[in-house]
Amino acid sequence: MPTIAEAAAEEARAILHRLPNRHSSSIPLLYLAWKTCAWLTPAALEEIAALTGLSPATVEGIAGFYTMFPLHPRGKYHIEICDNISCYINGAPDLKNHLRNKLGIEFGQTTSDGRFTLDHVECLGNCCEAPCMQINGKEYGRLTVQKINEILDSLD
């Protein structure tokens, strides 16, 4: 696995340079590490600690606070379905069950072939398109069982 310094030295420098305070770079650097290493490995966290001047434990604490950051490897496709109020009353519970059955895993788990990780998330800020989900950050709205099937089938 390449280190941040090897894979994205330029980007890391730009982040550190742009922010008026070095500690503020921690979250952008966590994003950068996520992009370069696929998940936040202990080595990546240590590297960020060195770059920001924070302790490794502090960096790990920061990464753990924000639910988006992967502290463990995730599947190739990360499915996040919203079940907050607007989605909930528009059928999200049924869609959640459908996803569990279709993928054969519980929420928080990854399929054994490493293709899908399934999570439910709080309001995605897309309530007028309820019920909705994201897959690797891409938004899908007005979901139905059929639409979910089509979306999953279209992934390679």
């Binding site: 503020s24 770079s25 921690s26 994003y31 920001t52 920061i62 606070f65 709080e122």
Partner: peptide
């Protein structure tokens, strides 16, 4: 990076300082 509490202004500012 996924924390509702960072919408609260002082939570937002601590986050912007790179902390929890």
């Amino acid at each position: 990076a996924g924390a509702y509490i960072c919408g609260e202004e002082s939570g937002l500012l601590t986050s912007l300082e790179g902390k929890r």
